[in-house]
Design a protein around this nucleic acid. Structure first.
Lengths: 114, 114
DNA sequence: AGTAATCGTTACGGATGCGTTTCATTCTCA
DNA sequence: TGAGAATGAAACGCATCCGTAACGATTACT
C-alpha cells in the first residue's frame, strides 16, 4: 500500500515542497511549529501544553510561544479547561485546517511527479 | 511509478520527518536554507550566489547568509571563481552529502509506513 | 486551613534570520 | 583607459526563536 522512495525522489519531494513554502504567501512556520500544529490536528483532543511538550520532547515555553505565534495567524486557539482551570486546551481552527490541507496538497502533488 | 499520497498520509510523513529533525542532533535549517542546500546538491554545478538567488527567487543576501550559516556547519563551501573573480562558486562537502542522505532516509523510511 | 505540587506564562539574555541599502572588487566595452 | 555594470559581502534595524529561571494561579494533599 506504499512504495519506498529512493534518495533522489525523497529529496526532490522535500525540495519542491520547501520551495513552495518559501514562495507561498502563507507564513512558513519553523520545524517545531509545524510539528506542534500537525500533532494538534492529527491526534485526538484534548491537547494541553504539558501534554504537547512531553509528546514532542520540548520545553513548555516552546509550546506556549509557538501557540502565541500560530494564534496570531489564527491557526490554533486556546481555551481554559473549566474542569481544571490550570489547564489550557489547544483547539483547531478553520484556517489551521485549510493550512494543513494546502500543505498536504503540496506534498501529494509533488509526490506524483517522481 | 508513483502513487499519490492521501491527505492523512502526506501529513503523517511531514510530521514524522519534522519531528525527527527537531529531535535529531543535527542542526535544523530554515526552510530557505534547506531549499538552497538541496538545490546545490541536486542540480549540476557550478553554482553562484546570483544564480541561486534567481533560481530560488530570493535576494542575494539571503543566499550569502545561508551559506555563512551552512558553511559553519560544514555543509557547503565557497571558492572564488578564478575565471571571473567576481563570482563565488558554491561547493559540496562530505558532511553536506551525509546530511542529505540522512534526510532522504527519514523521508523514505517514513513513507513506507503508510 | 495551609503547605506543597502542578500548570501555563512571562522575563531575561543570547542567538539567528530576514529585507534593504550600501560598499569594495572585478570585469566589460566603447 | 576610463566610465559603468555586475557580483558578492557587509551594515543596519527589525523581528523571531530558543533555554533557563522565575512567577501567579489553581488544585491536591494531610
Amino acid at each position: 500500500m506504499s512504495i519506498p522512495l529512493g534518495t533522489a525522489q525523497a529529496l526532490k519531494l522535500w525540495r519542491d515542497v520547501s520551495l513552495a513554502q518559501v514562495h507561498g504567501k502563507e507564513a512558513d512556520l519553523s520545524t517545531r511549529q509545524v510539528s506542534i500544529l500537525l500533532t494538534v490536528y492529527m491526534e485526538a483532543p484534548p491537547h494541553t501544553i504539558r501534554e504537547l511538550a512531553k509528546k514532542l520532547q520540548v520545553s513548555k515555553p516552546v509550546i506556549t510561544r509557538a501557540l502565541d505565534s500560530m494564534g496570531k495567524l489564527d491557526l490554533v486557539t486556546r481555551r481554559r479547561d473549566e474542569a481544571d482551570r490550570r489547564n489550557v486546551l489547544v483547539q483547531r481552527t478553520v484556517k489551521g485546517a485549510l493550512y494543513l490541507d494546502r500543505l498536504a496538497d503540496l506534498i501529494g502533488l509533488n509526490s506524483k511527479n517522481l
